[in-house]
Design a protein around this nucleic acid. Structure first.
Lengths: 143, 143
DNA sequence: TAAAATAAATTGCAATTTGCAAGTAAAAAT
DNA sequence: ATTTTTACTTGCAAATTGCAATTTATTTTA
């Protein structure tokens, strides 16, 4: 796997990986919606197609952003879990939340309220740490 | 212009706008590479095609993220400038920088160093404010 | 003032990506 | 043993992206 990068800019290079319709949505679903199996993702509100899902998961695994493992008691179900590299995307997800709450709400009439947005804004760093710790606590039994 | 949103999730809705290969690259070029005319963008390292550029700029203008104006002394050149809504994307750009520096550098051999990354990390909020103020200072003469 | 150059696009077409629907293979449940 | 479930894969249509050439309206230059 050799990834194609457009140029030497760090920001553009990040977007060569993250800049599409699905990658950060998948990360969000893992991080805060508890999704970890192929089926979990297909049942999401966003309704990703299975072929796209398979290709994005493979790509994220190759990049070291997620891992794919089998639980010892089940050979059918795969578990997709965020690595540290994937968890390090939490600040980006949080900033997307905040920007969206302030700037997209007016355009998407069905957007849901996030009651936690006030806490998120008042102490961003603690909120980010909390999300990461919660994720690790929930998933540590699978390692 | 009615934008299509996939669902009621704020993060997914942000990505319905920002989640593609070009939008955040264009914002970055405006914010920190001083690009403001159509020609400026076409001369970038990223080498965006003119048809894509035109369509993305139009879209960003319709969403209120940038404005398109003509300088009083020149009827040929248009100026594209970030609105407050666009400037509010600065934290996302900064987080992309940091994540990229730590997690993408290993994959993109030609990625340039950002000497300011240490400052960025040590005092994120000040850095964000500084970038926004610098942008406003540079562009205020066009309003 | 006519010709050349520049800025900001638009157009046609090819290539790539995305998305839908159906199908498959292996494992687990009944 | 049969059905159901999970995790895909495949084929094809639709949409998006990208390249190269062209266009129109300004400037600039000779």
């Amino acid at each position: 796997m050799d990834y194609k990068f457009r140029c030497e800019c760090p920001i553009t290079s990040a977007l060569d990986i993250l800049g599409d319709k699905w990658v950060l949505v998948i990360i969000k679903q893992m991080l805060i919606e508890d999704k970890k199996t192929f089926k979990d993702f297909t049942e999401s509100d966003e309704a990703i197609a299975t072929n796209i899902l398979a290709s994005k998961l493979k790509c994220l695994e190759e990049l070291g952003i997620i891992t794919k493992t089998q639980p010892p008691d089940n050979k059918k179900t795969n578990l997709y879990l965020l690595t540290e590299k994937g968890l390090a995307l939490t600040p980006i997800i949080v900033e997307l939340s905040i920007w969206s709450d302030e700037n997209v709400r007016g355009l998407n009439k069905i957007m849901r309220d996030s009651p936690e947005i006030a806490i998120m804004k008042s102490d961003k760093n603690s909120f980010i740490k909390m999300i990461i710790e919660a994720y690790k606590a929930k998933t540590e039994k699978f390692y």
